[in-house]
C-alpha cells in the first residue's frame, strides 16, 4: 500500500514535469532571446571581453558570482568546522 503510494508519487511527478516541458519551446529554437542577444551584441563593447560567458559571470551577473564564491567559502567553513580537532581553537 505505502509502496504503491510512493511509486505513484514518483510517476505523477515525472508526468507533470514532462507535461510542463512539453509546452516549452522546441529544442534548439528559443521562444525569445532578447536578453541573450543583448549580451552577445554588447558584451565586447561594454566590457571588452571576448568570452561572453565570462562577461556575464563577472560583469552583468557579478553579484551571483559573489554569492557563488560565498557558497564555496561557506561549504569550506562548514567542512573544516565539522572536522575540527577537539580542544583546539
Amino acid at each position: 500500500m505505502k509502496l504503491g503510494v510512493k511509486i505513484a508519487i514518483v510517476l505523477l511527478l515525472f508526468s507533470f514535469l514532462l507535461m510542463g516541458l512539453g509546452f516549452m519551446h522546441k529544442y534548439g529554437v528559443p521562444l525569445k532571446s532578447d536578453m541573450d542577444d543583448y549580451f552577445i551584441n554588447h558584451a565586447q563593447k561594454e566590457t571588452a571581453t571576448n568570452n561572453v560567458v565570462t562577461s556575464i559571470v563577472f560583469d552583468y551577473r557579478g553579484f551571483d558570482t559573489l554569492g557563488e564564491a560565498s557558497v564555496l567559502f561557506t561549504a569550506v567553513l562548514g567542512v573544516v568546522m565539522i572536522f575540527r580537532e577537539a580542544g583546539k581553537k
Binding site: V53, I56, D64, G67, E68
Partner: peptide, 9 residues
C-alpha cells in the same frame, strides 16, 4: 550565454 553562466553557478 546566460544559461551557461547560471549552470556554472
Amino acid at each position: 550565454p546566460t544559461p551557461q553562466a547560471l549552470t556554472l553557478t
